[in-house]
């Protein structure tokens, strides 16, 4: 296995671009004093790095488990499920007096989310071989359902809670939820370390269920663990910047192309680098260098969306 020479050069280029993006983001057009810049831009940068890592890694893991280059946790509604859990939980946590501790609420949300994911997978997997396909179909439906339920929940909550709610819970890129930065950092590092230790098993899982079991991978346990980890990573990303539908898809597919391999020790690293370039580099380019008023996340999602359609069309043709 390993990389071809061309792939090595491409990877090196992406790595250089990632570093340039980060440096550029911190230093471009600095007008006020450095202490402020480092704190202001630094926290924003950290949030974006965490989102890049969380979305990239969770999508990659998910695509390996589902043997698909098109499905992502976002398309299956993981991110809206998190928003729903958060919205429904908020009123409850507030009553327990935890309303003023966003980090604690966040951890509780993530635990709840992981728990729900775990129960759903256990129920759906059963002992059936077709479990995963069923899961995908239900996930697509679930995505829609969660979206509608979230809408409903937000309307049903009483007005004061709603205003707290909409002001605080649905983060976006222009309103990054910085209060959760440190918890998010710990969770992301934990999850990514875990995924990285499983990278060789992921390679085997890529060959399909039967081959993986033949080669001694405890299929059900490993898949459940990895799906739960993916759901935690999606929660982290959604809590920081809100739902993003196509970003993960963009990052993994670019990474498959750049690395030209399916070996996870390479694709994991490549996906993260690509995600950083897209997110941090894209932000720098559109908002700082080009001084454009266009919301850059929209552009990113547009690229991802176009890629999604292209992949679908190619899938249809094959």
């Amino acid at each position: 296995m390993g990389l071809t020479t061309a792939a090595r050069w491409r990877l090196l280029l992406v790595a250089v671009l990632a570093v340039l993006s980060i440096v550029g983001f911190m230093t471009w057009n600095v007008q006020s004093d450095w202490a402020f810049i480092i704190e202001y831009r630094g926290s924003r940068l950290l949030a974006m790095l965490l989102v890049a890592v969380a979305m990239g890694v969770s999508t990659l893991v998910f695509q390996t488990l589902t043997h698909s280059r098109i499905l992502t946790p976002s398309l299956m509604g993981f991110d809206v499920l998190y928003v729903l859990v958060h919205a429904l939980g908020l009123a409850f946590w507030a009553r327990l007096g935890l309303g003023s501790m966003p980090a604690v609420v966040f951890v509780l949300d993530v635990l709840l989310m992981a728990g729900i994911a775990l129960v759903l997978f256990r129920l759906l997997f059963g002992d059936s071989v077709r479990g995963l396909h069923l899961l995908i179909l239900l996930g697509m439906l679930g995505g829609l359902l969660f979206r509608e339920l979230t809408e409903l929940a937000l309307r049903v909550l009483d007005p004061t809670e709603f205003s707290i709610q909409s002001g605080r819970s649905i983060a976006s890129f222009s309103r990054i939820n910085l209060s959760l930065l440190w918890v998010a950092l710990v969770l992301t590092l934990g999850c990514v370390t875990l995924v990285f230790t499983q990278r060789r098993r992921l390679d085997v899982l890529n060959l399909g269920r039967d081959v993986a079991i033949n080669l001694g991978v405890s299929y059900r346990r490993t898949v459940t663990l990895l799906l739960v980890v993916a759901s935690v990573l999606v929660s982290v990303s959604t809590a920081l910047v809100g739902p993003m539908l196509f970003f993960g898809l963009l990052a993994t597919n670019l990474a498959y192309w750049i690395s030209g391999t399916h070996q996870h020790s390479w694709t994991l690293v490549t996906t993260v680098l690509v995600a950083v370039v897209c997110l941090v580099g894209g932000q720098l380019l559109v908002e700082q260098i080009l001084q454009s008023r266009l919301p850059f996340v929209m552009l990113l999602e547009l690229c991802g969306g176009v890629l999604f359609i292209l992949l679908l069309l190619r899938g249809v043709r094959e």
């Binding site: 296995m1 043997h67 060789r200 390679d203 085997v204 890529n206 060959l207 399909g208 081959v211 080669l215 001694g216 030209g260 399916h262």
Partner: peptide, 16 residues
């Protein structure tokens, strides 16, 4: 499999 694997890579998985 839709993976782009070489024959040797596939056979090597037998050692997993």
């Amino acid at each position: 499999t839709s993976l782009r694997l070489s024959v040797r890579d596939l056979v090597a998985f037998g050692r997993f």
